[in-house]
């Protein structure tokens, strides 16, 4: 079932009100919750990937060059990555608006 903007009628519900699209939480952009964002200093980053392991959101991944990248659509700004980065290459920057 694609994400629906209009609220569904009862006839539109799947059997037993099941949710048929796996991983559809992706439509919830929890990045809205964030008051500050993680920023990487790639000069210091050793591409170990520890930050990606401890992210409760699973919004950190490794890019083509091997550096971590954050999906700001979902990052709630908890800063666990900052605390866990042993090179100290991540810092939090306040969201402007």
């Amino acid at each position: 079932m694609p994400k629906q903007d209009a609220a569904p009628k009862w006839q539109d519900l799947a059997l037993g009100c099941a949710t048929l699209e796996p991983g559809s939480s992706k439509y919830q952009k929890t990045g809205d919750w964030r008051s500050s964002r993680p920023v990487w200093n790639f000069d210091q980053c050793v591409k170990c990937g520890v930050c990606t392991v401890f992210c409760p959101e699973g919004c950190l991944s490794i890019d083509a060059k091997g550096y971590p990248q954050v999906d700001l659509d979902y990052c709630k700004g908890c800063a666990i990555c900052v605390t866990e980065c042993w090179t100290g290459c991540i810092s939090m920057e306040e969201e402007k608006d």
């Binding site: 609220a7 569904p8 009628k9 009862w10 006839q11 519900l13 799947a14 037993g16 009100c17 099941a18 949710t19 048929l20 796996p22």
Partner: peptide
């Protein structure tokens, strides 16, 4: 075919879920 059965039904959908069951 992974599906999620028994989701949280917020006030926006609970009435419709009940109506579907009544029907």
């Amino acid at each position: 075919h992974p599906i999620t059965m028994g989701p949280v039904g917020m006030p926006e959908v609970y009435t419709e879920a009940k109506m579907a069951h009544e029907a």
